[in-house]
Design a binder for these strands. Structure first.
Lengths: 242, 242
DNA sequence: TTACACCTCCCCAGAAATGGCGAGGGCGCG
DNA sequence: CGCGCCCTCGCCATTTCTGGGGAGGTGTAA
């Protein structure tokens, strides 16, 4: 995990990333980084607005397919843990105790994912959520040292990847960013806080009929089936905060 | 805007930030940075879970009070613009055309805010949203050069400020989340995805009565008033992923 | 000026959710 | 062996939400 084996410098990789015109560029950059750091894997991935995981990196295709197929998105402690925190996290600090997590962990290691990992969560508007991960197989001491030395660079790298990915994202549909009006946001927020329609209407000092119009309107904008769904979507997109 | 006038290095300031035990530490760090970069202002601020703006930095108290009093939160193009983007942004690129924005801009400059600015938005879980801003009074050329040189450091600084602020935030209680049972999680997930109770019961191949028990049980565990509230809480706690 | 989005209010009938209750079987733990 | 938790199902009356509809007023932007 030192940098002796490669000729390209970190700056060259950053440069390469900055000039990328397609996802292959991110892919190539992850591979360059893997060589540069001489680690097991470098992966950048995110969950798009349809809840589908998208990514690029050095994991085997077989593992990625298996991940999707097995629905590991709901068992992966890296995802579960990082969706709740802002800071980069060492995989050791995550909660691997649940049964699905353990199954996942074993399967991951069998498929070449390292026993060590460090993931940097990044958030964007509308609930965009991405993870930049470096993973390796080694003992705890060696890993700690590696992270200690490189954590600033990794943070920067995470941001460069994310910036590029946002630029290149194919499914960047403009209609998806249907913003809610202020009143709609207030309404959804109050509902998410547990108030009934009557209560919320009272708090906003408007009639319940009016409130209903906001809820309906927000529901349509969010493409939701019912109020609960609308609140869930609003939260997932970061439109409301509870 | 060079670093000749001060004896403390950036590393010393980072160190100081890392050791901060209270918000005064962040305040002191912003002032040190202001001296270090020799710029007009350094400000870190965010909107907490109650929707209140909190901050620290080198702005005058008078300006901060005026900002809150006038409700500039809803007119400030920096806030409006950054809440919709992920990347750091130069104030010049924001939309200052609306009337409230222009009023705000004039008032801000009158109160000592620089004509140039660069703001880095940062997001956390639960919609936490923070801004790290550096502002100065100078011409465009000088400003571009400054940003070009320091943008990587500023990104790192933004993250260090945010990390510390999250640690120090007063209302931060890691309440022992009572875990939901597998069936409860499935139920909440289906509801969050927009299915009605009848549909969800069908999908789980159980009677609607049984499903209701799960919902009720989850609702109690989550301390929620109703189903919508329960789903919102489950999402906020990361118990379910949609 | 003419749109268009937003805010406000009203009606109704049917569908859905709620609250609280009881009841049985299964599984693991001390 | 109980105890607690989980899964499963049932019933009831009551409250709440939902799907449409219409009808004004305001403000900003083409």
């Amino acid at each position: 995990m030192d940098h002796a084996l490669t000729s390209s410098s970190l700056d060259e990789i950053l440069e390469q990333l900055e000039c990328a015109q397609a996802f292959q560029g991110l892919q190539a950059a992850s591979e360059a980084l893997r060589t540069y750091y001489n680690v097991g894997h470098i992966v950048y991935h995110w969950v798009n607005s349809n809840g589908e995981p998208i990514g690029c990196g050095t994991y085997d295709r077989a593992w990625i397919d298996r991940y999707v197929e097995k629905g590991y998105l709901r068992a992966d402690p890296v995802i579960l843990g990082c969706s709740q925190r802002f800071q980069p996290v060492d995989w050791k600090l995550l909660d691997w105790s649940s049964k699905p997590s353990r199954t996942f962990q074993k399967d991951a290691i069998d498929h070449g994912v390292g026993n060590q990992g460090y993931s940097i969560p990044i958030r964007g508007p509308n609930g965009q959520f991405a993870l930049f991960t470096v993973s390796h197989t080694c003992d705890d001491d060696e890993w700690s040292k590696f992270i200690e030395i490189n954590r600033k660079d990794l943070l920067l790298l995470a941001h460069y990847f994310n910036k590029k990915a946002l630029e290149l994202e194919p499914g960047r549909k403009p209609d998806a960013a249907q913003p809610l009006s202020p009143r709609e946001i207030e309404a959804m927020t109050l509902l998410a806080m547990g108030h009934s329609r009557a209560q919320a209407a009272n708090m906003l000092a408007i009639s319940e009929n009016t409130l209903r119009v906001y809820i309906e309107s927000a529901r349509h904008k969010l493409g939701a089936m019912n109020t609960t769904h609308a609140v869930a979507r609003a939260m997932a997109r970061g439109v409301i905060v509870v």
